[in-house]
Amino acid sequence: MGKLVFNSELCTGCRACELACSFKHERLFSPHLARIRVVRVDEEGIDVPTGCEQCEVAACIAVCPVRAIYVDPETDGVIIDYDRCIGCKECMTACPFGAVHYNRAKGIFYKCDLCGGDPECVKWCVTGGVQYITDLDTVLQLKRTKTAERALRSIAEGASAAGAAAKGGGV
């Protein structure tokens, strides 16, 4: 079970992940060709890394009319088979995260393939804004800790603990 975990609280917006990704896959430097993208929201001082969440019930798989998208049994990554893809754009419009991209030059759709279980973006992330976690229990445990931390903080700030916990939290 492999998954990239995106954490906007840790991301500094340096976008090294984008360029490392595009270089690894295309040998070119271009955020536009990256499978991972960081949305910089300057006015709030926040940077939000986005990419494929490797959904269990993946919208892209469900809508693909030619079954070009499948789950790699080794990594659990959701993969596009370029030989089957007919370029209908259904997966792109169905993905709730904007994680399926279109390469105009090659005329293909592409998405994160977890680099076969050794994601390049993670190697370049200095702060841990994007992490690769193979053990889902770890994710859950981290999530729970994070949620508890938020609740504690908001008690310290005088707000309702339940309200803060309900907002959830990143890892």
Binding site: T12, C14, T127
Partner: peptide, 23 residues
């Protein structure tokens, strides 16, 4: 911003140094 372990740290493109501080 209190939530972050790198409080307010923001980086320019491709920089590990993140010398900007948002507040």
């Amino acid at each position: 911003i209190k939530d972050s372990p790198v409080p307010g740290g923001r980086a320019c493109m491709s920089c590990p140094n993140r010398c900007k501080r948002f507040g």
